[in-house]
Design a protein around this nucleic acid. Structure first.
Lengths: 228, 228
DNA sequence: CGGTCGGTTGAAACTGATCAACAAGGGTGG
DNA sequence: CCACCCTTGTTGATCAGTTTCAACCGACCG
């Protein structure tokens, strides 16, 4: 029995260990649920009665400051788990960025499953530890990186998370709006927009449309993301 | 069997569940090690062969960007665990802020202990989940809070982590230098210094000396930290 | 076909960084 | 034991980057 059941991604745009927790468990006893665009799955502070595994679509998790400032914790995709927390209430709000399909499982059932299968607990531990590493990388990004470096990092993160079947991943799909990106990177929408333009002018990317970016010079983008 | 073995701190300056993992295990089979001020415990990238529990003193964990920009991940105190990672190499550097005493335990031994005592795995899970919640709060802080809000939050975090025996916690001890604080809050030392002065001038705190701050108006400080 | 929403672009204001000087300790060597 | 130096923190002046305010544009919808 070991503490490192899965290898941890070493590079900065941490690839998510897709479905690390969900694979088996959610097959057992989960009901399907769907969400419209912008529909809320749960609010920060709600009782954490269920855990969800995303089947399709994108979910955004966020935290609000009393005066309305918002911070987007993460964008979650197919295979990712939402709502897993040590607390008995959710620490963030979860909403649908696109139409979403997900499997819901009661907290109780998941706990039972963990009791029966110790390997599951280890998988959860590994998943959360990799989330923590990703959070540390985000902290470095927010605390010490310039706007351009942040956006470059963001594009690379999204590219590396994209479904593998879209093989020649030169095109990054951005299902979320500029406001979401701004709240994820700690910026304003205007600055995000300007920085996209800047990268475009520099010849590093091409803006196919608002929700589609072509990476023209991946190496250069990586250099920028790494920090000058 | 449940996923929430310990209550999760609800308020923002998350109190650390002191020694959540270490209590029992490190009593079994650990050797003591000491560090001088600024001595390195391990570097980012080193093999993660051991896990440490701090007995006394303060340790800082940090990550470097290629060009020298630094980000302080956290300040760790007596009871906290250092070096616990899912990866087989450390994802950050750990150094002594003050002279430090710690218990060292090999990764192997800890793994064995976890195998024998399933409750231990759950404790680790809870500890890491609370770390993750703390990381999310830091992300909000770095992404969306002003300088004054950040420093106020920092003082409250440190106050709430202080040993309980120093009961009327109106005085916060800052073992670390201004550079460390700046790298923790994503600022420059000049800005940190100016902001201390600003809070002092506002009558919210008093600077006893460089390493000691008296909180004159805790309510006001909390209001500032919460975001205006 | 107007209205609304989200995104882009421009100009001005502001916040925090940078550059620079100075002060206060603490340690070391004469 | 004292003088000096080196480190760390504070304060001031200027600068740069990002936000804010504002206008405009295009797409989607009713």
């Amino acid at each position: 029995m070991t503490l490192q059941p899965t290898a941890c991604p070493a590079v900065l745009p941490a690839a998510r260990p897709a479905a690390a927790v969900g694979d088996d468990v959610f097959a057992l006893a989960a009901e399907t649920q769907t969400l419209e665009r912008d529909e809320v799955l749960f609010y920060e502070g709600d009782d954490a009665r269920s855990v969800y595994r995303i089947v399709e679509g994108m979910v955004r998790t966020s935290i609000l400051l009393p005066d309305g400032r918002r911070y987007v914790v993460d964008f979650l995709q197919a295979g990712d788990i939402v709502g897993l927390t040590a607390s008995d209430t959710h620490t963030y709000t979860a909403e649908a960025v696109t139409p979403v399909t997900l499997s819901r499982m009661s907290r109780r059932k998941l706990d039972d499953a963990v009791a029966v299968r110790p390997g599951l607990g280890r998988k959860m531990l590994a998943t959360i530890q990799s989330d923590l590493v990703a959070a540390h990388e985000r902290l470095l990004l927010l605390g010490r990186k310039s706007v351009t470096e942040r956006l470059a990092s963001f594009l690379l993160i999204l590219r590396d998370r994209q479904p593998a079947d879209k093989a020649p991943t030169r095109v990054v799909h951005l299902p979320m709006g500029r406001t979401d990106i701004a709240d994820y990177l700690g910026l304003t929408i205007e600055t995000v927009s300007r920085t996209f333009t800047k990268l475009k002018t520099a010849g590093v990317i091409r803006l196919i449309d608002t929700y589609e970016v072509a990476i023209l010079d991946p190496d250069q983008l990586a250099v920028i993301a790494a920090g000058k």
